[in-house]
Simulated assay, not measured.
Amino acid sequence: MRKTFQLHVEGKNRDRVLDAVKHEIRKYIKRERRRDLPEGADFWDFDCRFGRTKEDAAVAHLSALTGLINEVAAEGGAQFYVEILAKPGKRQPRAAGAAEVHGVDAADGDVEGA
């Protein structure tokens, strides 16, 4: 999806237009995630770019898109550009003992605070 969304539409409430834009983006992501994965892939990953225009679009994380859209709307921006491209992803194994998981120390299995 490569699209410039207009937030000022004649005869439509700006808040409703903003909600419709977010809905369209979420719908696109859901549709892409339903596609069959290629051999060797674990999940669909997304390369995203966001900006007020296509020329000044910068790389953004998928989870940050809604916040960026809200910022443009709060500043009174008239439009913004979003680029979301799906690509197959492969999960990387975690390093042994690298992270604590939900209060359980990965090294010895003890629950913290007990």
Rank of each mutant, 00 (worst) to 15 (best):
E39Y: 09
E39M: 11
E39Q: 15
G40T: 12
G40C: 13
G40E: 12
A41V: 09
A41T: 11
D42E: 11
D42I: 09
D42G: 10
D42K: 09
D42Y: 11
D42C: 12
D42W: 09
F43V: 13
F43N: 07
F43R: 12
F43C: 09
W44A: 11
W44K: 11
W44E: 13
W44F: 15
W44M: 15
D45E: 10
F46R: 12
F46E: 13
F46A: 11
F46L: 13
F46W: 11
D47H: 05
D47A: 08
D47K: 14
D47V: 10
C48S: 12
C48P: 07
C48N: 11
R49S: 04
R49P: 01
R49C: 03
F50E: 04
F50L: 05
F50W: 05
F50K: 03
G51K: 09
R52C: 02
R52M: 12
R52N: 10
K54N: 03
K54S: 11
K54P: 05
E55D: 12
D56Y: 00
D56P: 02
D56M: 00
D56S: 04
A57D: 11
A57G: 12
A57T: 10
A57Y: 11
A57S: 15
A58S: 06
A58P: 00
A58H: 04
V59D: 09
V59R: 06
V59H: 04
A60E: 03
A60G: 01
A60F: 04
A60L: 07
H61W: 06
H61E: 15
H61I: 06
H61A: 14
H61Q: 07
L62Y: 01
L62V: 05
L62S: 01
S63K: 04
S63W: 05
S63R: 04
A64H: 02
A64I: 02
A64E: 15
A64L: 05
L65D: 03
T66A: 02
T66Q: 08
G67S: 08
L68K: 14
I69Y: 04
I69N: 00
I69K: 04
N70L: 11
N70I: 08
N70F: 11
N70A: 14
E71A: 12
E71H: 07
E71T: 13
E71G: 06
V72P: 02
V72N: 00
V72F: 00
A73H: 03
A73V: 06
A73T: 03
A73N: 09
A74N: 05
E75L: 04
E75Q: 14
E75A: 12
E75M: 07
G76E: 00
G76V: 01
G76Y: 00
G77L: 00
A78M: 08
A78N: 15
A78V: 14
A78Q: 14
Q79A: 15
Q79I: 09
Q79K: 15
Q79C: 08
Q79H: 15
F80R: 09
F80V: 08
F80G: 09
F80P: 08
V82D: 05
V82Q: 00
V82F: 07
V82R: 03
E83P: 04
E83Q: 14
E83A: 13
I84Y: 02
I84R: 01
I84K: 01
I84P: 02
I84C: 03
L85F: 09
L85H: 12
L85M: 14
